[in-house]
Each structure stands twice: as C-alpha cells, then as structure tokens.
Computed example of a mutant assay.
Amino acid sequence: MKKRLSLSLLLALSAPVFAQEAAHIADDVYVFTHGGPGNQYRINGRVNSGEAVTVLNRQNQYIEIQTESGRTSWVPAEFVATGESKLSQLPALETALTESRERIVVQDQEIADLNSQLSSISGSNVDYVNQVEGLEQEIRRLESEIANMDQSNLIRWLTHGGLVALGGVLLGLLVPYLPKRRKRRDDWF
C-alpha cells in the first residue's frame, strides 16, 4: 500500500515537471499538427523545423505541444527533439564564427610578425656565428704565434748560452798559452 502511494505520488510530482519541458521540432522535418494524439485526428496546422515548442503531454507515440504563438496541438513524438534547436543556436554560432575569423586574422598577423622577427634573429644569429668563427680563428692564430715566439725565444736563449759557454771554454783553453808577465824583481835588499 505504501509502495503504491509513494509510486503514485512520484508520478504525480513528475508529471508537472515533465509537462513543461522545453523542446523543438526536429531540424530536418516539416510537421503537420493534429487535433489529438493520432493520425485519425484532423490536421489543424503545421510547425516549421527548428521551431521552439513546449511539451505539455505525452500519449502513445504523440506529444502535445504548445508553440510560441500559444497554439496547442499534437505531433508524432519522433519529430520532437529536446533542448535548443539548431535554428535558435544559429545566431550565436554565427557570432562565434565571426569572432573566430577575427581571431584568426589577428593570429595570422601575429604569426607574420613572429616569422619576420625570427628571420631577423636568424640573420643576426648567422652574423654572430660568423663572428665567433672569425674570433676562434684569430685565437688559434695568436696561440700559434705565442707558441712560435716561445720556441724562438728558447732557441735564442740556448744559442746565447751556448755561445757564452763556448767562449768560456775557448778562453779557458787559451789563457794558459798567453805570455806571462814576469815578476819584477826587487833587488833592493
């Protein structure tokens, strides 16, 4: 008993919420409306695709709708889609498309600016690489000169030292053969 009561209460509470559901006629059809929930009822109008409607009731495979003009009628359930129609979304989508195109133009300009900056930086980079290579060659040349100068200084010092040593040896060999001075004799005593 409690289950039946709670189930009927649940259905009663859900019916008013369901009765006011926002929907639209499917975007790809043109629908004739009927005076009741079936084809046997008289056609009393038509609803264009994408038109916004409010779902009032469901019976069998038909839905009772209310159009924006306030007219109520029945249409097959397969032609009613819930939510916002593509037709009503179109202005927002067109605005978004326009904004996207404007952003693309701005981004294309930014890309062109960045590419020009990149090419100028690349040109500067090539210049810097050439300068670095030139400076490295100059450093190698100067290091080679320093090494050659060290070697020539070493050879010069060795030559001078050898000449001094040779002169000393020759002088040492010649000194004994030099005439000796005779000692003076003092005959005073």
Rank of each mutant, 00 (worst) to 15 (best):
M1C: 09
M1V: 05
K2N: 12
K2T: 07
K3G: 06
R4T: 07
L5T: 04
L5N: 04
S6A: 10
L7K: 04
L7G: 00
L11K: 11
A12R: 04
A15E: 04
A15M: 08
P16C: 08
P16T: 01
P16N: 05
V17R: 03
F18S: 11
Q20C: 06
Q20F: 11
E21Q: 14
A23T: 01
A23C: 09
A23I: 01
A26E: 11
D27Y: 14
D28L: 13
D28C: 08
D28A: 14
D28Q: 13
D28T: 11
V29C: 13
V29K: 08
Y30I: 03
H34M: 07
H34W: 03
N39E: 06
Q40N: 10
Q40P: 00
N44P: 00
G45P: 02
G45D: 07
A52D: 14
A52P: 07
V53N: 00
T54P: 01
V55S: 01
V55W: 02
L56V: 08
N57C: 07
R58H: 09
Y62R: 00
I63H: 00
E64K: 14
I65G: 00
I65Q: 00
R71M: 13
R71I: 10
T72S: 14
T72C: 11
W74A: 01
V75H: 01
P76Q: 08
A77N: 04
A77C: 02
E78V: 07
E78D: 11
F79H: 10
F79P: 00
T82C: 05
G83H: 06
E84H: 00
K86E: 14
L87I: 04
L87G: 02
S88V: 05
Q89H: 07
Q89N: 10
L90K: 12
L90F: 13
P91F: 09
T95H: 09
A96F: 07
T98H: 14
S100H: 11
R101A: 12
R103H: 12
V105N: 10
Q107V: 06
D113S: 15
Q117T: 04
L118Q: 10
S119F: 05
S122Y: 05
S122E: 14
S122T: 08
G123Y: 05
S124L: 02
S124N: 09
D127A: 10
V129M: 10
N130E: 10
Q131I: 01
E133A: 15
E133Y: 05
G134I: 01
E136T: 04
Q137F: 05
L142N: 13
L142A: 11
S144W: 03
S144E: 13
N148H: 10
D150N: 15
L154C: 06
L154I: 00
I155L: 15
L158R: 11
H160D: 09
H160C: 14
H160L: 15
G162Q: 04
G162W: 06
L166M: 11
G168E: 01
L173R: 09
L178M: 13
L178P: 01
K180V: 02
R182G: 03
K183C: 02
R184Y: 08
R184C: 06
R185N: 05
D186T: 01
D187W: 14
D187V: 07
